[in-house]
């Protein structure tokens, strides 16, 4: 089945129009690289409330993810590294108790989404053993080494940025803007990718496709 390719001025708005209140939304990007700005802005305008957002960070400056947080529509942020020199929007919301925070080691964040996408019910990792982030979690010693049980992190929607798509929704990325995109695309019930370029099916070398179209529901062409 091919993905829906949405083009034109309101393409991003149409792509996110179904996202309901209370949804968990995985948003790609590592700082500004790979952040799907047009989709995030469309979600900000869409107005769904009570959202849980998963991203590595918690917004930079006043644009993109930071602007989404500023709408007050995000109830909870799940991320590894919220505090940055330009995360004032998050800092203010968090300190005033208007935004819940779950801090997850970055490798657990990635692996929990990988597990969700791969049908894995949980995994044991040495990351966080003996630290406050392991408190209350099941631990097990395997072959003499201590591990903590982590559960999959599933999204209702994933918003990712890729470099190029074909008409089927196969995706390729660009440099370190790839980051969380491919793993988030596997972990959500509905994945929406914004791309700079859409080519005819067959024009992408099958050897270099990073996200196969099976994971992609909608593609938004941004200029």
């Amino acid at each position: 089945m091919s993905s829906d390719i949405l083009e034109g001025r309101d393409a991003a708005a149409r792509a996110v129009a179904d996202i309901p209140d209370g949804a968990t939304v995985l948003i790609g990007g590592f700082g500004p690289a790979g952040q799907p700005l047009e989709l995030i802005d469309a979600l900000s305008r869409h107005g769904a409330r009570d959202l849980t957002v998963v991203n590595n960070n918690a917004g930079n400056g006043d644009y993109g993810l930071a602007a989404l947080l500023k709408t007050g529509h995000v109830r909870k942020m799940i991320c590894s590294f919220p505090r940055q020199s330009d995360s004032w929007v998050f800092d203010d919301l968090y300190r005033s108790g208007r935004l819940e925070l779950e801090v997850v080691p970055q490798g657990n964040l990635a692996e929990r989404m990988r597990a969700a996408g791969a049908g894995i019910g949980g995994f044991f990792t040495p990351t966080s053993v003996g630290t406050p982030l392991a408190e209350g979690k099941e631990e097990r010693t395997i072959d003499g080494k201590d591990y903590v049980l982590e559960y999959p992190l599933h999204g209702d929607y994933a918003l990712v940025k890729a470099h190029r798509s074909d008409r089927m929704g196969n995706l390729v990325y660009r440099k370190t803007a790839r980051n969380f995109g491919p793993v988030m695309a596997t972990a959500a019930s509905t994945t929406i990718a914004q791309v700079n370029d859409v080519v005819a099916t067959g024009e992408l070398d099958p050897e270099v496709i990073v996200t196969p179209s099976i994971y992609v529901d909608k593609v938004v062409l941004t200029s």
Binding site: S80, F81, P82, R83, D91, Y94, R95, L101, V103, V104, P105, Q106, G107, N108, P126, T127, S128, V129, T131, P132, L133
Partner: peptide
């Protein structure tokens, strides 16, 4: 990763993964 101060915003990033891995 954390000073433990009550008003500090916790941010761990990849430090725990690197340190153990």
């Amino acid at each position: 990763w954390h000073t433990g101060a009550a008003d500090a915003i916790p941010a761990v990033g990849g430090a725990m993964d690197l340190a153990m891995g």
